[in-house]
Amino acid sequence: MIEFENVSFRYEKEKPVLDDVSFRISPGSKTGLIGANGAGKSTILKLLCGLEQGSGKITVGGLPVIPENLSAVRRQLGFVMQNSDQQMFMPTVYEDMLFAPLNYGVSREEADRRIDDVLARLNITELKYRHNHRLSGGEKRMAAIAVILANHPEVILMDEPTSALDPANRRMMIRTIRELPQTCLITSHDLDMILDTCETVILLHAGKVRAAGSAETILKDRQLLEECHLELPLSLAGKN
């Protein structure tokens, strides 16, 4: 479904951020992309959407991510950005949700149906006509997910979905992620959230994939995590 083969990348003239990174994500799975600040998590998401270009080969649903395919690739992907303020640019939640479907040629009636369906599923119907800049942090994050779901993506990319959320909103976010049927790639250093939502994990450190595999195994490995400047999830910390 998603495949990185020997991908390297650097921002202009800086030192490499990613150095020969390879991994694959199977359809329908939920994968946590973890690593300390600056490990290159957001950069991987940007490469996937074709917002940046590196060397090596990236494919999404069998399509290589190259300029000619961008439109087809992006149609499959829904990117929930770290900062919802940057993601939403229309005046109201409703108009923001309409933007992508209409751009991709979905009819107005079909788009309206999808929007009502997504809002009901996320339990935020009351946000429909609210103005984006009047939403609270938690509401904004939920609206941002609704905006992405309205376009029926096959893969959802989330950049630090629980950062800056209070405990109640964080719990709601975790519940929402667990209920998503799509393939998900979630970056975070909130390892408890990753443990609650993902079955597999990719651990990045110093521009390389340090470990990849079952979330249970990797997130329990105190020594490995500490080498990568991370800490055991709180829920596991007491157990050994």
Partner: peptide, 19 residues
């Protein structure tokens, strides 16, 4: 530029769809 990226990712081709 992030705002603009978000528009591109959602299929923006230079024309706003008539809401």
């Amino acid at each position: 530029s992030e705002l603009y990226e978000s528009m591109q990712l959602r299929g923006y081709q230079g024309d706003f769809p008539a809401v």
